[in-house]
């Protein structure tokens, strides 16, 4: 028996919005410690790694490990039927071919149940190597989304350049060029408003606007985003999901010029 109940059901709705444009289907690996999802997009340019810890759920039971292959378009349709303040429970029998979503209104007066067919996905389990990153940049997630959106008007690529002075985002195209520099902030009232640059070595890498903009669909999950870069390895874009876990996007750089 698997059962995971989340009083703050809106988090699950937001997680779905953050992955459904990148992945058509994915396996939810449910274990005693929590739920893991790891999948590359069809073109193998990006990877989504979602981690939801058992402790973050209001009730969590997983008697034996189960892998639930889900069509994310269908799951997204179902989660759209939940209100933002609904309590969401996912449950499945040990060897079931369906998963059930239960939405309870806060006053318990409305209870909706949706059963969805599971899929047999032949997906490889991927191991993510431990990587030391030269630059780790924390910035407000809304600011990052704004920068990606603004620079997308200029071209298909965004160059992210990190030095000890701060971080520079730039783009160039037919209409001209754009440069946005963010300096490390001094004292801020709220930690989430800070721009923090932890740099060992300066790094400049080029990334696809299209993918960065898809990652920013996770913005409602967290006020802060963390970018980790090293030469010749994928960029990591991480959003925390409340106290429950995180979503990490890995993106292969664009090469040459």
């Amino acid at each position: 028996m698997f059962e995971a109940r989340l009083v703050q059901g809106s988090l699950l709705k937001k997680v779905m919005e953050a992955i459904k444009d990148l992945l058509n289907e994915a396996s939810f690996d449910c274990a005693h410690s929590g739920i893991l999802l790891q999948a590359m997009d069809n073109s193998h340019v990006s990877l989504v790694s979602l981690n939801l810890r058992k402790e973050g759920f209001d009730k969590y039971r997983c008697d034996r490990n189960i892998v639930m292959g889900m069509n994310l378009t269908s799951m997204s349709k179902i989660l759209k039927c939940a209100s933002n303040d609904d309590i969401i429970t996912m449950k499945a029998q040990d060897s079931a071919d369906t998963v059930t979503f239960v939405f309870e209104s806060p006053n318990q007066e409305k209870v909706s149940e949706y059963e969805m067919k599971l899929m047999n996905l032949d997906q490889d389990q991927l191991g993510i190597p431990e990587t030391e990153y030269c630059c780790i940049i924390k910035l407000p997630s809304g600011e990052f989304a704004r920068i990606c959106r603004d620079l997308s008007q200029f071209g298909e690529s965004i160059v992210i350049s990190c030095t000890k002075e701060g971080v520079k985002f730039s783009a160039a195209g037919d209409i001209g060029t754009a440069n946005i520099k963010l300096a490390q902030t001094g004292t801020v009232d709220k930690e989430e408003d800070a721009v923090i640059v932890d740099m060992q070595e300066p790094v400049t890498l080029t990334f696809s606007c299209k993918y960065l903009n898809m990652f920013t669909k996770a913005t409602p999950l967290s006020p802060q985003v963390c970018l980790s870069m090293s030469p010749d390895v994928p960029l990591v874009v991480e959003y925390k999901i409340g106290e429950i876990g995180h979503i990490r996007y890995y993106l292969a750089p664009r090469i040459g010029d």
Binding site: H44, V45, G127, P129, P234, R254, G256
Partner: peptide, 14 residues
């Protein structure tokens, strides 16, 4: 224009 790299090879299939 730069070419898009891929992730194949970075992640180990377990």
């Amino acid at each position: 224009t730069p070419t898009q790299g891929r992730l194949d090879g970075f992640f180990k299939v377990m």
